[in-house]
Amino acid sequence: MDLQSQKDFLVKLANTKMPFGKYKDRYLIDLPEHYIVWYHNKGFPKGTLGRQMQTVYELKLNGLEYLIRNIRKL
C-alpha cells in the first residue's frame, strides 16, 4: 500500500461509523475496547470494515486512538 493509499484509508477510517449492531452509528474509533477485543477473538468481518476494525484494534492496543480522532477534527 503506497503512502497516499494509507492516508486515504486512515481518513476514511476516521469518518466511518459502525453500520450495525448495538453500537450502530458510533465512529469505529469510539467503539468500546471490550467490543473490539471481542471481535478480535471472534474474527473481524470480511472486507473493508474488517480491515478498519483490525486497525482500530491495533490503535487501541497501542494507545494511539488520538491519531484518528485528530484526523477527524481536520
Rank of each mutant, 00 (worst) to 15 (best):
N15H: 11
F9W: 13
E58S: 07
Q6C: 11
N41I: 13
K22F: 10
G63K: 01
A14E: 06
Q52R: 05
K24F: 08
R26Q: 11
Q4E: 13
Y27Q: 00
L74I: 01
K46G: 03
D25A: 03
R51N: 13
K60W: 00
P45E: 09
M53C: 06
K7I: 11
T16R: 06
K73V: 06
Q52K: 09
A14C: 07
D25T: 05
Q52M: 15
I29Y: 09
D25G: 06
N62R: 13
L59N: 02
R26Y: 10
K22H: 03
L10T: 00
K12I: 02
R26D: 08
N70I: 05
L67M: 15
H34G: 00
Y27F: 13
L49C: 09
L10H: 06
L59A: 04
I36F: 10
I29H: 04
W38M: 15
G43K: 01
K22I: 14
G63C: 03
Y39E: 12
G50Q: 05
N41Q: 12
Y35C: 06
Y39V: 11
L74C: 01
V37H: 12
L49G: 04
Y27G: 00
P45H: 00
K73S: 12
K17H: 02
Q4F: 09
K42D: 15
I36Q: 07
F20E: 13
G21H: 03
I29C: 07
T55E: 11
S5D: 14
D8I: 08
Y23A: 09
Y35K: 07
V56Q: 12
D2I: 10
D30I: 11
H34L: 10
P32Q: 05
T16M: 05
H34C: 00
A14S: 10
D2G: 15
D2M: 12
K46F: 05
L3W: 09
L64D: 05
L31T: 05
R72P: 04
G50T: 08
M18Q: 14
G50E: 09
T48M: 12
G63I: 01
K24G: 06
V11C: 08
D30T: 08
N15T: 02
D25R: 07
K24E: 12
G50M: 09
I71T: 04
P19Q: 09
N41G: 11
S5L: 10
Q54K: 13
L28F: 06
F44I: 14
L61C: 08
Y66I: 14
D30S: 13
Y66H: 14
K73H: 10
L61M: 15
I29T: 08
K7P: 01
Q4L: 08
M18T: 08
K12Y: 00
Y57S: 13
Q6H: 13
L49P: 02
Y57D: 06
L61N: 15
D2A: 13
Y57M: 12
M18H: 12
D25S: 10
L31S: 04
N62W: 08
F9E: 04
G50F: 10
N41W: 14
F20W: 07
N41H: 15
F20M: 08
L49N: 04
